[in-house]
Protein backbone atom coordinates (compact mmCIF):
# COMPACT_ATOMS: atom_id res chain seq x y z
CA UNK A 1 0.00 0.00 0.00
CA UNK A 2 1.41 3.36 -1.06
CA UNK A 3 1.96 5.59 1.96
CA UNK A 4 3.68 8.97 2.23
CA UNK A 5 2.36 10.70 5.34
CA UNK A 6 1.96 8.68 8.52
CA UNK A 7 -0.81 9.32 11.08
CA UNK A 8 1.48 11.49 13.17
CA UNK A 9 1.90 13.82 10.20
CA UNK A 10 5.45 12.70 9.46
CA UNK A 11 6.73 11.94 5.97
CA UNK A 12 7.81 8.34 5.47
CA UNK A 13 11.54 7.84 5.11
CA UNK A 14 12.73 8.66 1.61
CA UNK A 15 9.52 10.49 0.61
CA UNK A 16 8.81 14.16 0.00
CA UNK A 17 5.58 16.12 -0.08
CA UNK A 18 4.26 16.26 -3.63
CA UNK A 19 2.57 19.60 -2.86
CA UNK A 20 3.93 22.90 -1.55
CA UNK A 21 2.59 24.33 1.69
CA UNK A 22 0.15 26.76 0.07
CA UNK A 23 -1.43 23.92 -1.88
CA UNK A 24 -1.59 21.70 1.19
CA UNK A 25 -3.28 24.53 3.08
CA UNK A 26 -5.81 24.96 0.25
CA UNK A 27 -6.49 21.22 0.19
CA UNK A 28 -6.88 21.18 3.97
CA UNK A 29 -9.35 24.05 3.80
CA UNK A 30 -11.43 22.08 1.28
CA UNK A 31 -11.30 18.99 3.51
CA UNK A 32 -12.51 21.06 6.43
CA UNK A 33 -15.25 22.62 4.34
CA UNK A 34 -16.43 19.12 3.46
CA UNK A 35 -16.42 18.00 7.11
CA UNK A 36 -18.27 21.14 8.18
CA UNK A 37 -20.85 20.67 5.43
CA UNK A 38 -21.42 17.08 6.54
CA UNK A 39 -22.39 18.35 9.98
CA UNK A 40 -24.50 21.21 8.65
CA UNK A 41 -26.32 19.03 6.12
CA UNK A 42 -27.07 16.35 8.72
CA UNK A 43 -28.42 18.99 11.09
CA UNK A 44 -30.65 20.48 8.38
CA UNK A 45 -31.78 17.01 7.37
CA UNK A 46 -32.90 16.31 10.94
CA UNK A 47 -34.89 19.54 10.81
CA UNK A 48 -36.56 18.45 7.58
CA UNK A 49 -34.80 21.18 5.60
CA UNK A 50 -32.49 18.91 3.60
CA UNK A 51 -32.98 15.55 1.92
CA UNK A 52 -31.25 12.22 2.34
CA UNK A 53 -27.57 12.64 1.54
CA UNK A 54 -24.25 10.87 1.99
CA UNK A 55 -21.52 12.41 4.08
CA UNK A 56 -17.86 12.29 3.13
CA UNK A 57 -16.47 12.15 6.70
CA UNK A 58 -13.36 10.00 6.91
CA UNK A 59 -12.76 10.03 3.17
CA UNK A 60 -11.65 13.64 2.71
CA UNK A 61 -8.05 12.81 1.81
CA UNK A 62 -9.24 10.22 -0.68
CA UNK A 63 -11.65 12.61 -2.42
CA UNK A 64 -9.61 15.81 -2.24
CA UNK A 65 -6.26 14.18 -3.01
CA UNK A 66 -7.60 12.52 -6.16
CA UNK A 67 -9.43 15.61 -7.42
CA UNK A 68 -6.32 17.71 -6.78
CA UNK A 69 -4.46 15.67 -9.40
CA UNK A 70 -6.83 16.82 -12.16
CA UNK A 71 -6.85 20.02 -14.18
CA UNK A 72 -10.45 21.29 -13.98
CA UNK A 73 -9.99 23.19 -17.25
CA UNK A 74 -9.17 20.08 -19.29
CA UNK A 75 -10.10 17.02 -17.28
CA UNK A 76 -13.46 15.48 -16.40
CA UNK A 77 -14.92 14.01 -13.24
CA UNK A 78 -17.64 11.37 -13.43
CA UNK A 79 -18.91 11.25 -9.86
CA UNK A 80 -20.90 8.86 -7.74
CA UNK A 81 -22.58 10.65 -4.81
CA UNK A 82 -20.06 10.98 -1.97
CA UNK A 83 -17.52 13.32 -3.50
CA UNK A 84 -18.69 16.83 -2.63
CA UNK A 85 -15.23 18.42 -2.27
CA UNK A 86 -14.11 17.01 -5.65
CA UNK A 87 -17.16 18.55 -7.32
CA UNK A 88 -16.45 21.90 -5.67
CA UNK A 89 -12.82 21.90 -6.75
CA UNK A 90 -13.93 21.11 -10.29
CA UNK A 91 -16.25 24.11 -10.38
CA UNK A 92 -19.70 22.82 -9.34
CA UNK A 93 -21.33 25.41 -7.07
CA UNK A 94 -22.07 24.36 -3.48
CA UNK A 95 -25.45 26.08 -3.82
CA UNK A 96 -26.36 23.67 -6.66
CA UNK A 97 -25.35 20.69 -4.53
CA UNK A 98 -27.58 22.01 -1.76
CA UNK A 99 -30.52 22.53 -4.11
CA UNK A 100 -30.10 19.03 -5.55
CA UNK A 101 -30.31 17.47 -2.09
CA UNK A 102 -33.19 19.75 -1.16
CA UNK A 103 -35.01 18.05 -4.01
CA UNK A 104 -34.86 20.90 -6.50
CA UNK A 105 -33.97 19.63 -10.00
CA UNK A 106 -32.31 22.98 -10.75
CA UNK A 107 -29.46 21.83 -8.52
CA UNK A 108 -28.56 19.23 -11.14
CA UNK A 109 -27.56 22.01 -13.54
CA UNK A 110 -23.85 21.94 -14.36
CA UNK A 111 -22.47 25.35 -15.38
CA UNK A 112 -21.00 25.64 -18.87
CA UNK A 113 -17.32 24.84 -18.89
CA UNK A 114 -17.53 22.64 -15.79
CA UNK A 115 -16.43 19.18 -16.91
CA UNK A 116 -18.74 17.02 -14.86
CA UNK A 117 -21.40 14.42 -15.41
CA UNK A 118 -24.33 14.51 -12.97
CA UNK A 119 -24.17 12.86 -9.57
CA UNK A 120 -24.85 9.15 -10.06
CA UNK A 121 -27.20 7.22 -7.81
CA UNK A 122 -27.40 3.89 -9.66
CA UNK A 123 -24.37 2.00 -8.40
CA UNK A 124 -21.58 1.56 -11.01
CA UNK A 125 -23.74 2.78 -13.93
CA UNK A 126 -21.38 5.75 -14.41
CA UNK A 127 -18.35 3.56 -15.12
CA UNK A 128 -19.16 2.74 -18.78
CA UNK A 129 -20.09 6.40 -19.28
CA UNK A 130 -16.65 7.47 -18.11
CA UNK A 131 -14.98 5.03 -20.50
CA UNK A 132 -17.05 6.22 -23.46
CA UNK A 133 -16.45 9.84 -22.53
CA UNK A 134 -12.68 9.32 -22.29
CA UNK A 135 -12.62 7.31 -25.50
CA UNK A 136 -14.61 9.98 -27.36
CA UNK A 137 -12.43 12.84 -26.07
CA UNK A 138 -9.36 10.91 -27.17
CA UNK A 139 -10.93 10.28 -30.59
CA UNK A 140 -11.39 14.04 -30.95
CA UNK A 141 -7.73 14.60 -29.96
CA UNK A 142 -8.73 16.52 -26.84
CA UNK A 143 -6.14 16.70 -24.11
CA UNK A 144 -8.41 15.38 -21.39
CA UNK A 145 -8.37 12.69 -18.73
CA UNK A 146 -11.54 11.34 -17.09
CA UNK A 147 -11.55 10.32 -13.42
CA UNK A 148 -14.50 8.23 -12.27
CA UNK A 149 -15.43 7.66 -8.62
CA UNK A 150 -17.06 4.51 -7.25
CA UNK A 151 -16.90 2.28 -4.22
CA UNK A 152 -16.09 -1.22 -3.03
CA UNK A 153 -19.73 -2.23 -3.44
CA UNK A 154 -19.79 -0.95 -7.02
CA UNK A 155 -16.79 -3.13 -7.82
CA UNK A 156 -19.11 -6.15 -7.60
CA UNK A 157 -21.44 -4.83 -10.30
CA UNK A 158 -21.26 -6.05 -13.87
CA UNK A 159 -20.91 -2.48 -15.12
CA UNK A 160 -17.55 -2.25 -13.31
CA UNK A 161 -16.14 -5.29 -15.06
CA UNK A 162 -17.57 -4.35 -18.44
CA UNK A 163 -16.19 -0.82 -18.15
CA UNK A 164 -12.70 -1.97 -17.14
CA UNK A 165 -12.63 -4.52 -19.94
CA UNK A 166 -13.59 -1.96 -22.56
CA UNK A 167 -11.23 0.70 -21.19
CA UNK A 168 -8.30 -1.68 -21.45
CA UNK A 169 -9.21 -2.63 -25.00
CA UNK A 170 -9.55 0.91 -26.34
CA UNK A 171 -6.82 2.44 -24.15
CA UNK A 172 -9.20 5.05 -22.78
CA UNK A 173 -7.58 7.91 -20.80
CA UNK A 174 -9.54 7.11 -17.67
CA UNK A 175 -8.65 6.72 -14.00
CA UNK A 176 -10.91 4.32 -12.12
CA UNK A 177 -10.82 5.70 -8.58
CA UNK A 178 -12.24 3.07 -6.25
CA UNK A 179 -12.88 4.32 -2.75
CA UNK A 180 -12.81 1.22 -0.61
CA UNK A 181 -14.42 2.74 2.48
CA UNK A 182 -15.05 -0.60 4.11
CA UNK A 183 -18.81 -0.64 3.67
CA UNK A 184 -21.53 -0.92 1.05
CA UNK A 185 -24.27 0.32 3.35
CA UNK A 186 -23.93 -2.49 5.92
CA UNK A 187 -22.08 -5.09 3.85
CA UNK A 188 -18.39 -5.20 4.73
CA UNK A 189 -15.64 -5.29 2.14
CA UNK A 190 -14.83 -8.93 2.96
CA UNK A 191 -18.30 -9.93 1.77
CA UNK A 192 -17.89 -8.20 -1.61
CA UNK A 193 -15.00 -10.24 -2.95
CA UNK A 194 -12.70 -13.11 -2.03
CA UNK A 195 -9.90 -11.22 -3.79
CA UNK A 196 -7.00 -10.04 -1.64
CA UNK A 197 -7.33 -6.55 -3.03
CA UNK A 198 -9.80 -4.97 -5.44
CA UNK A 199 -7.04 -3.21 -7.39
CA UNK A 200 -5.41 -6.49 -8.42
CA UNK A 201 -8.31 -7.05 -10.84
CA UNK A 202 -6.77 -4.42 -13.12
CA UNK A 203 -4.14 -6.94 -14.25
CA UNK A 204 -6.85 -9.11 -15.76
CA UNK A 205 -7.99 -6.17 -17.89
CA UNK A 206 -4.50 -5.34 -19.08
CA UNK A 207 -3.70 -2.17 -17.14
CA UNK A 208 -2.05 -1.25 -13.86
CA UNK A 209 -3.73 -1.22 -10.47
CA UNK A 210 -2.47 0.31 -7.25
CA UNK A 211 -3.52 0.34 -3.62
CA UNK A 212 -3.03 3.56 -1.68
CA UNK A 213 -3.61 4.65 1.88
CA UNK A 214 -6.79 6.61 1.28
CA UNK A 215 -6.39 8.58 4.50
CA UNK A 216 -3.04 9.93 3.28
CA UNK A 217 -3.58 13.07 1.20
CA UNK A 218 -0.09 12.92 -0.28
CA UNK A 219 -0.20 9.24 -1.24
CA UNK A 220 -3.60 9.66 -2.89
CA UNK A 221 -2.51 12.79 -4.74
CA UNK A 222 0.81 11.33 -5.92
CA UNK A 223 -0.65 8.04 -7.11
CA UNK A 224 -3.55 9.75 -8.89
CA UNK A 225 -1.20 12.27 -10.49
CA UNK A 226 0.87 9.37 -11.81
CA UNK A 227 -2.23 7.71 -13.28
CA UNK A 228 -3.43 11.00 -14.80
CA UNK A 229 -0.02 11.60 -16.39
CA UNK A 230 0.01 8.09 -17.81
CA UNK A 231 -3.48 8.52 -19.28
CA UNK A 232 -2.52 11.92 -20.71
CA UNK A 233 0.54 10.39 -22.37
CA UNK A 234 -1.54 7.72 -24.09
CA UNK A 235 -0.76 5.01 -21.54
CA UNK A 236 -4.40 4.12 -20.96
CA UNK A 237 -6.38 3.41 -17.80
CA UNK A 238 -5.37 2.81 -14.19
CA UNK A 239 -7.36 1.36 -11.31
CA UNK A 240 -6.58 2.98 -7.97
CA UNK A 241 -7.98 1.40 -4.81
CA UNK A 242 -8.01 4.02 -2.11
CA UNK A 243 -8.32 2.24 1.25
CA UNK A 244 -10.20 4.49 3.61
CA UNK A 245 -13.11 4.31 6.00
CA UNK A 246 -16.50 5.92 6.10
CA UNK A 247 -16.76 7.37 9.62
CA UNK A 248 -20.46 8.21 9.43
CA UNK A 249 -23.56 6.45 8.18
CA UNK A 250 -24.11 5.37 4.56
CA UNK A 251 -26.51 8.27 4.38
CA UNK A 252 -28.76 10.20 6.71
CA UNK A 253 -31.33 7.36 6.64
CA UNK A 254 -28.82 4.73 7.82
CA UNK A 255 -28.10 3.41 11.32
CA UNK A 256 -24.51 2.15 11.44
CA UNK A 257 -24.78 1.17 15.11
CA UNK A 258 -26.46 -2.00 13.83
CA UNK A 259 -23.34 -3.19 12.01
CA UNK A 260 -20.20 -1.18 12.92
CA UNK A 261 -17.90 -2.54 15.63
CA UNK A 262 -17.15 0.42 17.96
CA UNK A 263 -13.52 -0.68 18.30
CA UNK A 264 -13.09 -0.56 14.53
CA UNK A 265 -14.68 2.88 14.40
CA UNK A 266 -12.32 4.04 17.15
CA UNK A 267 -9.33 2.68 15.24
CA UNK A 268 -10.27 4.60 12.12
CA UNK A 269 -11.10 7.79 13.96
CA UNK A 270 -7.52 7.80 15.17
CA UNK A 271 -6.47 7.75 11.51
CA UNK A 272 -8.51 10.85 10.66
CA UNK A 273 -7.20 12.21 7.35
CA UNK A 274 -7.72 15.86 8.35
CA UNK A 275 -5.78 15.61 11.62
CA UNK A 276 -2.89 14.07 9.73
CA UNK A 277 -2.53 17.01 7.37
CA UNK A 278 -2.85 19.53 10.19
CA UNK A 279 -0.08 17.82 12.15
CA UNK A 280 2.14 17.82 9.08
CA UNK A 281 1.63 21.53 8.44
CA UNK A 282 2.19 22.61 12.03
CA UNK A 283 5.34 20.50 12.22
CA UNK A 284 6.53 22.23 9.04
CA UNK A 285 5.87 25.72 10.33
CA UNK A 286 4.26 26.76 13.60
CA UNK A 287 2.85 29.84 11.86
CA UNK A 288 0.50 27.65 9.87
CA UNK A 289 -1.50 26.99 13.05
CA UNK A 290 -3.08 30.43 12.93
CA UNK A 291 -4.09 30.05 9.28
CA UNK A 292 -5.58 26.64 9.99
CA UNK A 293 -7.48 28.00 12.99
CA UNK A 294 -9.07 30.62 10.75
CA UNK A 295 -10.46 27.99 8.40
CA UNK A 296 -13.35 27.03 10.69
CA UNK A 297 -15.02 30.43 10.58
CA UNK A 298 -14.09 30.83 6.93
CA UNK A 299 -15.74 27.60 5.74
CA UNK A 300 -18.77 28.18 7.99
CA UNK A 301 -19.25 31.51 6.24
CA UNK A 302 -18.93 29.91 2.82
CA UNK A 303 -21.57 27.32 3.72
CA UNK A 304 -23.94 29.97 5.05
CA UNK A 305 -23.56 31.99 1.85
CA UNK A 306 -24.23 28.89 -0.28
CA UNK A 307 -27.32 28.08 1.77
CA UNK A 308 -28.54 31.63 1.29
CA UNK A 309 -27.86 31.41 -2.47
CA UNK A 310 -29.77 28.14 -2.65
CA UNK A 311 -32.70 29.61 -0.73
CA UNK A 312 -32.64 32.69 -2.94
CA UNK A 313 -32.79 30.71 -6.18
CA UNK A 314 -35.92 29.92 -8.10
CA UNK A 315 -38.39 27.78 -6.18
CA UNK A 316 -39.47 24.40 -7.47
CA UNK A 317 -42.17 24.58 -10.11
CA UNK A 318 -44.25 22.26 -12.25
CA UNK A 319 -42.42 23.12 -15.44
CA UNK A 320 -39.33 21.37 -14.06
CA UNK A 321 -41.12 18.09 -14.77
CA UNK A 322 -40.98 18.85 -18.49
CA UNK A 323 -38.17 21.31 -19.14
CA UNK A 324 -35.28 19.00 -20.00
CA UNK A 325 -36.78 15.67 -20.98
CA UNK A 326 -36.59 16.14 -24.75
CA UNK A 327 -35.10 18.77 -27.05
CA UNK A 328 -38.21 18.28 -29.18
CA UNK A 329 -40.96 16.83 -26.98
CA UNK A 330 -43.60 14.47 -28.39
CA UNK A 331 -47.04 16.05 -28.87
CA UNK A 332 -48.42 14.04 -26.00
CA UNK A 333 -45.82 15.47 -23.62
CA UNK A 334 -46.50 18.97 -24.93
CA UNK A 335 -50.18 18.48 -24.06
CA UNK A 336 -49.40 17.02 -20.65
CA UNK A 337 -47.31 20.10 -19.93
CA UNK A 338 -50.14 22.34 -21.07
CA UNK A 339 -52.49 20.61 -18.62
CA UNK A 340 -50.18 20.34 -15.66
CA UNK A 341 -48.21 23.57 -15.97
CA UNK A 342 -50.51 25.99 -17.72
CA UNK A 343 -53.75 24.67 -16.25
CA UNK A 344 -55.18 24.09 -19.70
CA UNK A 345 -57.90 21.56 -18.96
Amino acid sequence: MVNVLDPSGTLAAGTASPLDDDEVLAALRLMKLSRAFDAKGASLQRQGRFGTFSQVAGQEASVVGSAWALDPVRDWIVPQYRELPALLRHGYPLSNFIRYFQGNPAGGAIPDGVNLLPIQISIAAQLPHAVGLAWGLQRQAKDAVVLVYFGDGASSEGDFHEACNLAGLVGAPVVFFLQNNGWAISTPRRKQSAGRTLAERAAAYGFPGAVVDGNDLFAVYAETARAVARARDGGGPTLIESVTRRLGPHNTADDPTRYVDPADAEHWRALDPIDRVERYLVQRDAHHAARIAAFDADVAGEIERALADADGGDAVNRDQLFAHVYADPPVRVVRQRAQRVLGDR
Binding site: L117, A125, L127, P128, H129, A130, V131, G132, L133, A134, W135, G136, L137, R139, Q140, K142, G158, D159, E162, A163, N165, L166
Partner: peptide, 14 residues
Protein backbone atom coordinates in the same frame (compact mmCIF):
# COMPACT_ATOMS: atom_id res chain seq x y z
CA UNK B 1 -24.48 -2.70 -20.84
CA UNK B 2 -21.09 -1.26 -21.70
CA UNK B 3 -21.95 -0.97 -25.39
CA UNK B 4 -24.88 1.24 -24.40
CA UNK B 5 -23.17 2.93 -21.45
CA UNK B 6 -20.01 3.73 -23.39
CA UNK B 7 -22.12 4.99 -26.27
CA UNK B 8 -23.72 7.42 -23.80
CA UNK B 9 -20.24 8.65 -22.87
CA UNK B 10 -19.24 8.92 -26.53
CA UNK B 11 -22.35 10.99 -27.22
CA UNK B 12 -21.64 13.35 -24.30
CA UNK B 13 -18.05 13.75 -25.56
CA UNK B 14 -19.33 15.10 -28.87
Amino acid sequence: ASIVGAALGLAVSG
